[in-house]
Each structure stands twice: as structure tokens, then as C-alpha cells.
Write a protein that binds this DNA or RNA. Sequence first.
DNA 1: CCGATATGTTTCCGAACGCAAGCAACTAGC
DNA 2: GCTAGTTGCTTGCGTTCGGAAACATATCGG
Lengths: 148, 148
Amino acid sequence: MTQTSFLAVIRLLSAQALLEQKFSQELGSVHGLSLNDSLLMMHLEQAPLLRLSRVDLAKRLCVSPSTVTRMTLPLEKLGMLGREADARDARLAYVTLTDTGRKVILAARQTLERKAKEVFKDRWSEDEVATLADLLGRLTASQPNDLV
Amino acid sequence: MTQTSFLAVIRLLSAQALLEQKFSQELGSVHGLSLNDSLLMMHLEQAPLLRLSRVDLAKRLCVSPSTVTRMTLPLEKLGMLGREADARDARLAYVTLTDTGRKVILAARQTLERKAKEVFKDRWSEDEVATLADLLGRLTASQPNDLV
DNA sequence: CCGATATGTTTCCGAACGCAAGCAACTAGC
DNA sequence: GCTAGTTGCTTGCGTTCGGAAACATATCGG
């Protein structure tokens, strides 16, 4: 069990490095987004009012709050994200997904879907990919809201 | 299939962010290593002569060669890594694992194994972890030498 | 009401990385 | 052996990130 868990973790880390390399380049050149930018916008996409607070986003992305501040700044200037205050709590500064942003992330998602399909095309059966997604989902399930 | 592959990829990326956060702190405070430092040394650990060239390491870790140069510098000063020239090709500067380095990475590996076991302890059966490791292994198998 | 503590956000600083450029050494074709 | 192209490594520069600190606001206990 010890050895197996260790192996799973090491391979997960290695696999991520590989996938990030595969995805980030096309994502950047085609849509002008980083992988983390895309994940951030996808979290907004499925949020109740297309908005989330910065600390909430930080927890979902497993990054620091300061990173969220910096990530949202350029996207806000590009008109993909907006800023909204809370009526009750003046500390909160919600990040919102604009119409422009929703179109961009929709297109970016299609790119990601295509690349994801390529990754598994040859050596995985559909059932195996589903099993993988399910097993990984139990890891991410311990975190605040799951994607997709 | 498209949707399933996409889900698997997104969850893998999210899971990695979670695991990195979980592991890197203890790894740094206890052994003074980053996660990537540890992966680098584990690759050396299982290399034929405890040594690999810098470009080879870069490919295995999915980082740029310049990153390998910068990563090895402090570890070399700490005596964990060494440098060895090739008799036939004077361009090559192998990174070698010293005795000190071998002891350090052995201890770090135990920390990682313990944390890895914790991650899966509650919600996964042993078979499921093995399945996960196997499925992820097919991803990393497309890369130069697999770890463990 | 008021001080103490907690929470959300931003800014500053140092660390880590990729890319482009540069240098050294190897290889191929002539 | 000479030139041209390739490969391995390093350095400089810009970008991105985490942690500490600062600040504003909210909440709690008296």
C-alpha cells in the first residue's frame, strides 16, 4: 500500500508536468490565456451568479490570495472579468465573468477538450478514462467545489 | 469521450495543485528540498551510474535545461550533487548523486511515502490506488524513463 | 460604544521558471 | 582540415508565484 500510494502520487505529479507543457502553449497562443487563467474562469463559469470572492477562488485553485489578485488584474483590463462589491460586506470584491469572458472561456474550453481527447486517444479505453476521472475526482472532492 | 477526457484532465490538474500544496511545505521544512528537487534526485537515484546529463533531467522533469542548471547549483554547493565530465564528449556535464545526496533523498522519500499513504488512506481501496497508478503510468510512459 | 480579534484584499520582496541569446564542443559533408 | 549545422550548457531578462506586512472592514465580548 505504501509503495502503491507513493507510485500513484509520483506519477500524478509527473503526468501533470507533462500535460501542463502540452496544453499551456496552445492555450496561450490561441486564446491568450494561461492554464491557471482558464481554470479560474471555468470556476466562475459554473458559480451561482458567475462570481466568486478572491479567497474562494484562491482555495479552489490552490494558490495564494495574492496570486488571484495579480491574475485577475490583466484579465479585468481585457474586459473578460469584472469587479463587484457585496452589499453587506464591504471587504468582499467579487470577481465576475463578463460576456466577453464567457465567450473566451467557451472557446478555450473547446481547445482543451480537443487536446484532452488526443491525450487519451490511443492507449486508453473509454471506460479507463472514466475510471481515471472518477478516482481523481475523489481527491478533488475534498476541496471546495469541483469543476465540470 | 470528449467530456470524459476533459474531466479527467481538469481533475488531474486540480489534484496536482492540491498534492503539491500538501507535500511541498513539509518537504521543505524537514529536508530543505523542493518537490522538484526531490524528483530530480529520485531520477538520479535510479539512473545506471547515479548520474544523468542536464538535458536528460530536463526532459524527465518537463522543465527547461536552464532550470536544471539553476536547480542543481545550490544542491551541488550543499554536497548532495556532484559534477562529472564525459570522457568522450566534453560538452556533457553529468549531474551525479553523492553519498550525502543519497541519504537525504532516502529520508525525503520516506516523508513522501508517509504523506502519500495519508492521502489515500480513507476513501480508496488498495486496488483502486493500484488502478490509479497504472492508468497514470500510461501517461508518463510516453516520456523518458519512468520513476520508481 | 469600544477594544480585540478575525477576515478579505492588496502591495512588497525574494525565489523559481521559460525563453532567447551566447558559448563551447561535436558531427557531417566536402 | 574546414566550414556549416547541431547539441549541451549557461546567463540575462521578463514573468509568475508564495509569504509577510499593511490596510480596511466585520464581528465578538464586555
